[in-house]
């Protein structure tokens, strides 16, 4: 019985390690293909438009309401200790460093990542990838590289949009609905929030974009078994991307703190 449990754990561990290894190799080949010839500029633009441009509205809307909700909760909490002047900087810090990149990453992983996995999965089961192979077209160069590049570049840009609209929402709530002083709101933010906090968030977003695009292209690329296989690949791509983003966020946060510490930057 106990031996069986250990064997099961061993099997599962080996399976996940193997899958992780395959993902790393796939990510490496996909990333390398970005720099191999021919450079697929038109494909990149097409995917950039799909991931970036078409996600604008949903990201802006989510950012706006996140800013409204978060600033109200922070206001309610700070009112108890009579520190409502700090609502602005606390919300700005939370959005720039954590909520901006994480929520944008999750939204884009769900919207664009799911579409990427479904599209590639459908191409795989309908033999379109085999067709590319036998036509002498490098599928990594044509299908994977442009998608990874487009996601990696567009996620930080969308995060900046999220940050902007979230702060806009916070400003509306704090100044117009709650009635705090506008000058204090901006002044406190300027005192506390540094530009590097924004870049910290954008850096995280860049990593999240890179991560979800590799996970989703990997799942779609290896889809099998008809429509059901495409559905599974899409589901696994989105779920794995979302969980990875949340887990990686914690480690990135510590990595950035470590970087500040090593460089002697006071946090």
């Amino acid at each position: 019985m106990i031996l069986g449990i250990f064997q099961y754990i061993k099997r599962q561990t080996l399976y996940y390690l193997e899958s992780f290894g395959e993902l790393v190799v796939f990510g490496w080949k996909g990333s390398r293909s970005i720099f191999s010839r021919p450079f697929r500029f038109l494909e990149f633009v097409r995917h950039f438009e799909f991931i970036g441009n078409r996600s604008f509205f949903i990201v802006a809307l989510t950012g706006l309401f996140t800013g409204l909700a978060l600033s109200f909760q922070v206001y309610l909490g700070f009112k108890i200790v009579n520190a409502t002047n700090l609502v602005g900087p606390v919300v700005a810090l939370g959005i720039a460093r954590e909520l901006g990149p994480v929520l944008t990453g999750l939204i884009i992983a769900a919207r664009a990542g799911g579409a990427i996995a479904a599209r590639l999965g459908s191409m795989r089961v309908n033999e379109q990838m085999d067709a590319l192979d036998v036509m002498g077209v490098d599928t990594f160069n044509y299908l994977i590289g442009p998608r990874i590049l487009a996601a990696t570049i567009s996620t930080p840009l969308l995060t900046a949009i999220f940050d902007f609209f979230a702060m806009f929402g916070a400003w509306i709530l704090v100044v117009f609905l709650v009635g705090l002083d506008q000058a204090v709101f901006w002044d406190k933010i300027a005192q506390v929030v540094k530009v590097r906090y924004l870049f910290e968030g954008l850096f995280k977003a860049l990593v999240f974009g890179y991560l979800f695009s590799i996970v989703c292209t990997f799942k779609g690329y290896h889809a099998k078994g008809g429509a059901q296989g495409v559905g599974e690949a899409t589901n696994q791509g989105v779920v794995n991307s979302m969980v990875s983003i949340i887990v990686l966020d914690y480690f990135l946060m510590n990595l950035i703190r470590l970087f500040y510490y090593v460089m002697g930057i006071q946090d």
Partner: peptide, 22 residues
């Protein structure tokens, strides 16, 4: 891999599903 990609230009394939890019 690169040579294979080049070599495959000598082939044409009609797939069961036609495999057209939709």
């Amino acid at each position: 891999h690169k040579e294979m990609v080049e070599f495959r230009k000598k082939f044409g394939v009609l797939f069961q599903s036609a495999a057209l890019f939709d």
